[in-house]
Amino acid sequence: MDFAFLMAEQRIKDAIDNGDFDHLPGKGKPLEPEDLSAVPPELRIGYKILKNANILPEELQLKKEMMTLQDMIGCCMDPGEKEKLKKKWNEKPLRFNHLMEKRSITTSPAFGAYKDKIYKKF
């Protein structure tokens, strides 16, 4: 075994002995399985890493921004400000579509299954 592996094992054992893992959230509970079947296999590990770091993938961030802008447009009373918000909103679907084409997600079987539902949201 290599030195790095042995060091890592020793640090984990020391942490267990010191009780460093005793107060972690979800301790003693089974892990919830994640359904990543809609994510292309080559992107799954990246999505999992981003999720664990509480970072949204760019396409999800764009969707979130689009929904926020729609809510703001619906509540806005100032016509000038409403136009600015509409202009910002119009840029988001273009960026989203470009991103989807670039990543070739639109050709994946998962996208085909949910294509109509996705387009209805827009």
Rank of each mutant, 00 (worst) to 15 (best):
F3V: 15
F3L: 15
A4V: 07
A4Q: 15
A4F: 07
F5M: 14
F5V: 14
F5G: 07
M7Y: 11
E9L: 14
R11D: 05
R11P: 05
I12N: 01
I12Q: 01
K13F: 06
A15V: 09
D17I: 06
N18P: 00
D20A: 13
F21D: 08
F21Q: 08
P25Y: 04
K27V: 15
P30G: 01
L31R: 15
L31A: 15
L31Q: 14
E32A: 13
E32K: 15
P33Q: 09
P33G: 01
E34D: 10
E34Q: 14
D35W: 11
D35H: 07
D35K: 06
S37K: 08
P40I: 06
P40G: 02
P41E: 02
E42D: 11
L43F: 07
R44P: 09
I45F: 12
I45G: 05
I45M: 15
Y47E: 00
K48Y: 11
K48N: 09
K48A: 12
K48Q: 07
I49E: 04
L50T: 01
N52A: 13
N52Y: 03
N52R: 14
N52H: 05
L56S: 13
L56Y: 11
E58K: 14
L60V: 11
Q61E: 10
Q61T: 05
L62W: 00
K63T: 08
K63R: 10
K64D: 03
M66V: 03
M66T: 02
M67Q: 14
T68C: 06
L69R: 11
D71I: 09
M72C: 06
M77E: 15
P79A: 02
P79G: 02
E81A: 09
K82M: 09
E83G: 02
K86Q: 12
K86I: 06
K87N: 10
K88M: 12
W89N: 12
N90E: 12
E91F: 02
K92A: 05
K92W: 00
L94E: 01
L94N: 02
R95C: 09
R95Q: 13
F96L: 14
F96C: 01
N97D: 09
L99M: 04
L99C: 06
L99D: 01
M100T: 08
E101S: 11
R103F: 07
R103D: 09
S104V: 03
S104Q: 15
I105C: 07
T107S: 03
P109Q: 01
G112H: 04
A113Q: 03
Y114W: 05
K117N: 10
I118R: 03
Y119L: 13
Y119H: 04
K120I: 03
K121D: 15
F122T: 09
